[in-house]
Write a protein that binds this DNA or RNA. Structure first.
Lengths: 188, 188
DNA sequence: CCCAAAAAAGGACATTTGTCCCAATGGCAT
DNA sequence: ATGCCATTGGGACAAATGTCCTTTTTTGGG
């Protein structure tokens, strides 16, 4: 549920240490919006520490969380490949440390650094891979099963992530989430 | 809903015509399974013509369709980046013509052909991009709205894709799909 | 051309989930 | 400490969706 990519992080830390690629370190407080959907940005972010959420909201005020991003996850990178608006908003959940690239710098690394290129290809492939089972499970099993599954993969979920976010990740209302948690407690 | 990638197809046709990269053309009849989830394969496919579905089924027999693949869409490429089992099954919907690469050939092209590398990066980025609004919409709006939206983007949907597949794409039962179609007809 | 099998349509009922509330609790700034 | 606001928990009812079944329609092979 909270995605990570240690290999990519390690390599970017190494690039950063070399001082050559215009990579900048930044920090954000908790609960801050970093990107808003349907706007243009010119930076790629890579998380050094902390947790962010990537989400999409619609005109009904409903929010659907695409993923929780942990160490080594990038965001804002899709817009390097097809110059367009962001699809997702990104906000911090905990305090966040990131490395940032300009689009030009990121593109340049892709073209000149084969290892970087490979790591980014892998990162994109992983983002695709993990979504399939997630959505399949979400549609294929009742809410309670989904919660059990999340808690198995991420035990201190409820203490770190607000209920509303968990509900928006599963695609249900807070009411339904509470009901399901209650049901699980009763049956335990 | 039925994804396409003309730029990639055009380039691969050109590569194929050159005869140099071990690309093989193949054809499949309608309703044939090409890949099964959780198995190992050693080929990358790119669709020349026809429609395939990429789906995931669970032990309850529920099926969730990830995407419908049209001209220029690849499948089996994720396993090049992280040598693992396929997540998805792929089956033809209509008769299908494809080009196939060996993993080695695909990897070689990625490393030596900058244009190919860029096109594949873009293709992966697009696969990620399109999923966000799709799932957001699916959770955020009632079934009827989802159907209207699909029909707007793909008018002859119902004539080309079986009802069961449409339902499995939206993540509902055939019964619910019929009910929604009925509701729309009545209100029209 | 006909028949078997698949696909589509829908009735009746059960279950799940959402909506709309309101009450309780817990930080957090003043 | 006090008051305010966001978060959490849950009752009661409404609406959406699933389950189970039966009937109708379509399709493709002999």
């Amino acid at each position: 549920m909270i995605r990570k990519n240690k290999a990519l992080l390690a390599y970017v830390e190494w690039l950063y240490a070399s001082g050559k690629y215009g990579i900048v370190a930044e920090a954000y407080a908790a609960k801050r919006t970093i990107m808003e959907q349907a706007r243009r940005y010119n930076k790629v972010y890579l998380i050094k520490s902390g947790i962010a959420k990537c989400y999409l909201s619609n005109e009904n005020g409903r929010i659907f969380i695409q993923e929780f991003l942990g160490e080594g996850m990038e965001f804002g990178e899709l817009e390097v490949f097809n110059e367009q608006h962001t699809i997702c908003s990104v906000a911090t959940v905990t305090p966040l440390e990131v490395y940032t690239f300009s689009h030009a710098g990121f593109k340049n690394l892709l073209e000149t650094d084969a290892k970087f290129n490979t790591l980014v290809l892998k990162a994109l492939a992983d983002k695709i891979r993990y979504k399939a089972p997630r959505h399949s499970y979400q549609h294929g099993y009742p809410i309670e099963d989904n919660i059990v599954r999340l808690q198995a993969n991420f035990p201190d979920l409820i203490t770190v992530i607000p209920k509303k976010d968990i509900a928006n990740y599963i695609g249900i209302t807070t009411r339904s989430l509470n009901r399901a948690l209650r049901g699980l407690k009763k049956r335990a």
